[in-house]
């Protein structure tokens, strides 16, 4: 993460973080140009092929990088506020955990953990309470969207439990239902 500028920085001093943005734009432009350079030609009749527009964008990105660098060097970029890093880590962590678990643990567990970690990122909430509500809400959402509205959402243990539960309920209330139906 980029170090925030101290609030006391006097004006008209180079803004190093913004200079970093300029460097990033330049790198992006170089990447676009490099990618375009390995493309074959094509579109012989149009005279502009698959590389033309990427090259144009790369040139513009380089120009914008220079412009950004000038503004940064002059300290004309807007001031940034102090950022708390811990909440960001909680939320990004939650998204990463969801990504890692979604295929194996199913929608409810993965999304429940994301829910709890996001809530934790925003303040002092009890983790067990957050996890429990996360699982319950996600399971309910899964049931509505995957079962009733036929959306494809990955199933895990909690989802299978719900399917089993629904099955038991159904047989309990309707003993006639069976293979014959």
């Amino acid at each position: 993460m980029i170090e925030p500028m101290a609030q006391t920085t006097p004006k008209r001093r180079p803004d190093w973080a913004a200079l970093l943005v300029a460097a990033g734009l330049l790198a992006l432009g170089a990447l676009v140009a490099w990618d375009a350079s390995r493309l074959g030609s094509g579109g012989a009749y149009a005279r502009i092929g698959p590389q033309t527009i990427p090259y144009a964008i790369a040139v513009c990105l380089a120009g914008l990088a220079v412009w950004t660098a000038i503004e940064a060097a002059l300290g004309e970029f807007p001031q940034r506020e102090q950022q708390d890093k811990l909440p960001i880590l909680w939320i990004v962590g939650g998204l990463v955990v969801q990504m890692a678990l979604i295929k194996f643990a199913g929608f409810s567990i993965a999304t429940g953990i994301l829910f709890a970690m996001t809530a934790r990122g925003f303040g002092r909430v009890s983790i067990p309470k957050a996890l429990l509500s996360g699982f319950l809400i996600s399971a309910a959402v899964w049931f509505v969207f995957a079962r009733l509205l036929q959306l494809t959402l990955p199933a895990g243990p909690i989802e299978r439990l719900m399917i089993e539960g629904a099955k038991l309920l159904a047989t309990a209330f309707n003993p006639q239902a069976g293979p014959a139906a």
Partner: peptide, 15 residues
């Protein structure tokens, strides 16, 4: 409250 609201937004966005 914010923690739950934003937790819900992320749930929803990823859903």
């Amino acid at each position: 409250p914010k923690p739950w609201l934003y937790a819900g937004i992320l749930l929803f966005a990823t859903l």
